[in-house]
Amino acid sequence: MPDAEKFLERMGDKITEVVHKPKRLYFVVKDDDLSEVAEYLFHIMKCRLSTATATEVHRGIEVLYQFSDDSTGDYYCPRVVMTDKEHPSMHSITPIVKGAEWIEREMMEFWGIEFRGHPRPERLLSKDHPQNLDQPYRFRRLS
């Protein structure tokens, strides 16, 4: 991953817990730095957002964005960790990557994550649900 070295050099002060596998780079980024990292990946490196995955783990709720560099087949995966399981909240990257709109709305709905700055913070799958759904869908196994 030659471009990964350049990326690490440029963004090294903003990322921690780097896991480097063949064609995959996973790393943790602070919520405040996510926009800058996403901007660099999407606009400078011309990566495409494949999707994002929220997972509940012992230390909190993690959101892992999966950016694909289609020119090399490499993946860059910034991970944001939210330790407050009751009220998880982070910045949205939808203002930077339009393609993140649906997946962030889905994570909002399923995991109860607030995406600050999302242009359309509505439910994606159940906006017409007749019941008052005021809790996330996913069963919290580790709380």
Partner: peptide
Amino acid sequence: AIDYCAVGPTSRASGVPGDVRKDEP
């Protein structure tokens, strides 16, 4: 197509060359 992160024939018909078979064979 780039902004919406479209894939497959939808994006390739718009000049975005992404194809997993070539990008990560």
